[in-house]
Amino acid sequence: MRLQDIAKLAGVSPATVSRVFSHHPNIRKDVREHVFAIAKAHNYHPRLSTKQRNVVIILPGDEIYPIRTCLEMVMMALTFVLPKHGFRIEVLPQDNIERLDSIQFCGAVAIGAEPDDFKKWSDRFSAPLVLVDRDAPANSPNVYSVRSDEAKGMELAIGHLYERGCRKIGCIIHGMAGTGNADIRRTSVAKALKSRKLPSDGLIQLSRDDNYVEIIGKLLRQNVDSLFCPGGNAGIVTAYALSLFNKRVPEDISLIASEHKLYSCYATPPQTTITQDHIGLAEIAANVIDSHLEKSRLPQRSVLQYSLIARDSVKSLDS
């Protein structure tokens, strides 16, 4: 099947088909959708132009992805890595995603977006989409996932606290049930506690920004000896909340949070954290787009490991 064959079946000129596949802005929506439907029906995948090096970074709204710190760290990694691969960057808020129909681009990267929002991506665009920190929707051949192993990350933190003698670990997970990574983190923390025969009832809490301090107070009343607070600005907020309750880290309570490049190592005391490989995530995203331009394919799902940065916020209770 050639481009000329798609044009004949669609009843348009080869030049029009070429403009559709290059996302030219001066193509009517009905024509664009018709050409893509013909191409999909005949399993035709156009060759993307290697001269077109524009990558769109799609940023979520607060209601979808409230954890701004991770968003910022992934964004910093992408703006560092993509230009090294020769890509130009355009940033687009997800609530303005209809603009993609008028932008010429060879690939897109969405940070922390919900997969259901992109179920029809492969029907609309020939360019690849890389979802960072989320799984790709089913039956979407041009949608890729690059994420960190949340289960292993939660295990890493709980294991470190356990090795230091902590036996009643409270956990506050930023986010709400059914959104983002909240559910998999909660399940993974519960599994890590259970495998060590540690209590979990009432000790694993989901939290919004506006009730974080209140939940820390509830956990302290249960006499936890440590806190694990993955996600976003949790390290900053937790340190502040503990100061309100006159609790010192690590003398009174140990703490592990998510890495915050501008805070974690400068906190008092410097915080032990788990961290994603943000540069690694960005490199895979760039490689996926490169592979499409070269008419090859990488695995549709890539998973990177968390690492633990041990600093001074965890006290050894065995000593």
Rank of each mutant, 00 (worst) to 15 (best):
K8C: 06
G11V: 12
P14C: 14
V17A: 12
P25K: 08
R32W: 15
E33L: 14
V35F: 06
A39W: 07
A41I: 01
K51N: 11
K51Y: 08
V56Q: 03
I67P: 03
C70D: 10
E72M: 08
E72A: 08
M76W: 07
L82S: 04
H85Q: 07
I89L: 07
I89Q: 03
E90I: 14
L92C: 01
N96K: 15
S102Y: 14
C106H: 06
A108L: 10
A110K: 00
S122E: 09
S126C: 14
L129S: 05
V130T: 03
V132Y: 02
D135S: 08
A138N: 11
V143K: 08
S145E: 05
V146E: 06
E155C: 02
L156I: 12
H160N: 09
L161G: 03
E163G: 05
R167K: 14
K168M: 03
I173W: 00
I173N: 01
H174G: 03
M176Y: 04
G178V: 05
N181F: 01
T187H: 08
T187E: 15
S188E: 08
A192G: 06
L193Q: 11
K194F: 05
S200H: 15
D201G: 00
G202V: 05
S207A: 13
N211S: 07
N211T: 05
E214H: 14
L220F: 00
D225T: 02
D225F: 13
F228Y: 12
C229R: 07
G231P: 01
E251V: 01
E251S: 12
I256A: 03
C265G: 00
T268G: 04
H278Y: 15
H278T: 12
I279G: 05
N287K: 15
I289H: 09
I289W: 03
E294A: 10
S296W: 07
L298P: 02
Q300P: 04
A310V: 15
K315P: 02
S316V: 09
S319I: 14
